[in-house]
Design a protein around this nucleic acid. Structure first.
Lengths: 247, 247
DNA sequence: AGTTAATAAATTGGCGCCAATTATGGCGCC
DNA sequence: GGCGCCATAATTGGCGCCAATTTATTAACT
């Protein structure tokens, strides 16, 4: 009997071993629950002790997460939870608008009875869950978007939505304003209803609006500025001073 | 002085060490030159001897390539050059149409003098190259699409185009008809001219048509069928025989 | 007192070895 | 003659150890 690499379909990806998956899922849920802030160092020995596995699995898991842009690895310095720049966060949302508009349309095109049942089941699960539980809300949001992408029946776009969902949670953890809460899952039943009604234009517009709403909750904090932006600013001052001195 | 992980921007990704990159680039160019057919087993010891590096670098490189869907890894069996299914090839092209239409439009929006110079330089390089050199043509095609994606100034879509370009070369290696040759790079000067002229609609249409042309060169060869499709066919025969026997 | 340089501790990177699993060749059996 | 089974060989998976690099600490010096 051959064992499958990933049993649940909403798992992060395709790590080779089972112990790798433990580390990957651990880091992912820790990030999703905001127990691991962006920029945190992920020491190999520490993760190995925490996950109960060996250091080699931790390294493979970190390499896997690095390929998904969840962590960044510096040579001889270790792995850190990736802190996306403001530009990268905007890029992520622009890509989501593009890809998820496509997956929504394709999901409507290929919608059948099984797809309708899956959508209804998810809406029911969202209606029944505790709205004050932030990590659960975030996980349900990700599951909704991934479900739509699965119904689109395109493996490339499905993987893209999975990756963009993860990176979005990193962007939220980096740039979210402390005030706004639980405003996003409210829109899911609306989108689901429009999809079930095969209202293409309205579903696309609502999905775009939903992504815009998530993006609007983020603000560019200057304290979390990226190094590249900092050097760009210094270069800008330099050129401005040069032109000012010339004039 | 801090050394950069990847010096050239068109490299495959972000492998940690320099030796890993040797193996990654070696496998990539071998695939691009059709010296490694899809389905070929990539033994660790063999790759280590061939690349002159150690086995650990080979493993990290294979893990990296597996995360990019270039190779597939089976537990305790090793890594093989990924042989995309016909469905996956169609998915790749559908995703390319979506993403590259977007990158083309964004490249036109943000086009400046530097971008125009890069496009003109690439067109000149394509005009000067030997059209009978298949691997060089394929590499130039990939570089053109990646250049457009870079001008779009969206890191997520840039990475997506890089990955989709690689996967397309795998799809071509798997499904290409032997007859058709060097018909694709002909369209690049046209697309480049339309982009330079800021003709949005025509550029998008031409880019879509160009991708369609590449896809049209592929045919679903039955001999290179995927395992899943094969089992599906056997199941189909089984049910047909059962219903036939009952009737 | 601040800064620089040297030393020590901690962490990552890499290699060799051995165990576990799988592919292969040969043998006996039906 | 074909099929299934077992032993051998080859390959991958994993662990421990040591070297190389970075980081923290301490000391000396201006």
């Amino acid at each position: 009997m051959r064992r499958n690499a990933n049993s649940s379909d909403d798992s992060g990806g395709d790590p080779r071993s089972m112990d790798d998956d433990i580390v990957v899922q651990g880091v992912l849920t820790a990030i999703g629950q905001k127990r691991l802030a962006p920029g945190t160092k992920l020491g190999e020995d520490r993760l190995a002790r925490a996950s109960g596995t060996s250091r080699i699995h931790v390294r493979q898991a970190l390499s896997h997460l690095a390929s998904r842009h969840i962590v960044v690895q510096f040579p001889n310095r270790g792995a850190f939870v990736h802190r996306p720049s403001w530009k990268e966060a905007q890029d992520i949302f622009a890509a989501r608008r593009l890809v998820e508009a496509a997956t929504t349309g394709m999901a409507i095109d290929r919608l059948d009875a099984r797809g309708e049942a899956l959508i209804r089941e998810h809406v029911a699960r969202e209606a029944a869950h505790d709205p004050t539980d932030r990590p659960a809300s975030l996980a349900l949001t990700a599951e909704f978007h991934i479900l739509i992408a699965r119904l689109a029946d395109n493996s490339v776009l499905f993987d893209a939505v999975k990756e963009l969902t993860l990176r979005t949670s990193l962007a939220i953890a980096t740039f979210e304003t402390p005030g706004s809460l639980d405003c996003s899952p409210r829109a899911h039943p609306d989108i689901a209803g429009l999809i079930l009604r095969r209202d293409r234009a309205a579903a696309l517009a609502e999905m775009n609006h939903h992504i815009d709403e998530i993006e609007a909750r983020l603000i560019p904090l200057l304290t979390k500025m990226d190094d590249d932006e900092l050097t760009a600013i210094f270069k800008e001052i330099g050129s401005a001073a040069a032109s000012g001195a010339r004039t």
